[in-house]
């Protein structure tokens, strides 16, 4: 592995300054994804800014009646938090369905959002990948790896975002708070954090160079039941082959796109009085399977309809 340098800042301002001073720097939090990728020489940062001990590990009430999850809150901490469990059960379910207990103890809220795809060809450095090497081509297109996107894919990339947590956050209309290197701060909807691949799949988020996520803000919980269900090839410790989060009338799908996929067509149909099955059919109408991932059409239609039925979201509320 390539040599790199390492620093541990005391506060956010110092962290941003350290990153700005070192081109090729990466923020290191739990390291559950970044360190693995460094071992495989897929990520080769020249400098690591260890943000894991910044004072961003709190879960606080917001004045609007929601919760602010600090960027370095761990997945275990968020999933176990009584307020999260009571008011955002879909989020707790989503987090607990991901990874393993050991990984959730280390993985952080912001790190989870910024984890990279698990596409088999991204991990296999003998194959072309536009994420690893822009312009190299995409081995997944025409390949046999089936856990690929059915929404929003491009001719450059068909990878999916692997997070469970982010799918629930999307359905919950979470916002992401961001700090920049010149002292600026901004907040964006989670839905605007991740990008579709387009021609530049190596640019995965709308974060500007040197920016850092400082928190995820959950608005007050929506009216209505919540659920997160995940289909996977074994009972635990496996990435989703498809997942659904429902919170109130909001629906997000996982493992189907380069980002958590907000099912707005389904939501619109529901608002118009559609049944769960009709709502999912409306959403799946824009899906573009590639031959290897066709099973996701039936999977998502059924799983989505089941979740909507369970939460009562499709019975004319």
């Amino acid at each position: 592995m390539k040599p790199f340098t390492y620093e541990r800042p005391a506060d956010v301002t110092e962290a941003l300054a350290m990153a700005a001073a070192a081109p090729g720097a990466r923020f290191l939090a739990g390291g559950t994804n970044l360190v693995d990728l460094m071992k495989l020489q897929i990520e080769q940062p020249t400098h690591l800014v260890d943000v894991s001990r910044l004072p961003l590990g709190q879960i606080n009430e917001t004045s609007e009646g929601g919760l602010r999850l600090g960027a370095t809150t761990t997945n275990s901490q968020v999933a176990a938090d009584a307020k999260v469990r009571a008011r955002y059960p879909a989020l707790a379910q989503a987090i607990l369905s991901g990874a393993s207990g050991q990984l959730r103890n280390k993985a952080t809220t912001a790190g989870n959002l910024l984890q990279r795809t698990r596409c088999a060809y991204f991990y296999d450095t003998t194959k072309p990948c536009n994420k690893r090497e822009p312009g190299a081509g995409c081995a997944a297109i025409g390949g046999i790896y089936a856990n690929t996107a059915i929404f929003g894919a491009s001719g450059a990339c068909i990878a999916t975002h692997p997070s469970d947590m982010a799918v629930a956050m999307s359905a919950l209309d979470a916002r992401v708070e961001i700090a920049g290197p010149n002292g600026q701060a901004r907040a964006i909807p989670l839905d605007d954090l991740h990008r579709l691949p387009g021609e530049t799949p190596h640019i995965e988020t709308t974060l500007e160079p040197g920016e850092m996520i400082t928190a995820v803000v959950l608005p007050p919980p929506p009216t209505g039941d919540q659920i997160y269900r995940k289909a996977r090839e074994r009972a635990s410790y496996a990435f989703a082959i498809g997942s659904v989060a429902v919170a109130g009338g909001k629906v997000a799908l996982g493992a189907v796109a380069h980002k958590p996929w907000r099912a707005r067509a389904a939501e619109q149909a529901l608002a118009g009085g559609a049944s769960p099955a009709e709502a999912m059919a409306a959403e799946m109408a824009s899906a573009r399977p590639d031959g290897h991932n066709d099973f996701k059409l039936k999977l998502m239609a059924r799983l989505g309809a089941a979740c909507l039925t369970t939460t009562g979201a499709g019975d004319g509320q």
């Binding site: 698990r118 088999a120 991990y123 003998t126 390949g143 009972a235």
Partner: peptide, 17 residues
């Protein structure tokens, strides 16, 4: 090449199974 080449991609039963 094999498509699965690590233990995240090649699934053996986990405890929950």
């Amino acid at each position: 090449s094999f498509i699965a080449q690590d233990l995240a991609g090649y699934h053996v039963p986990a405890h929950a199974d």
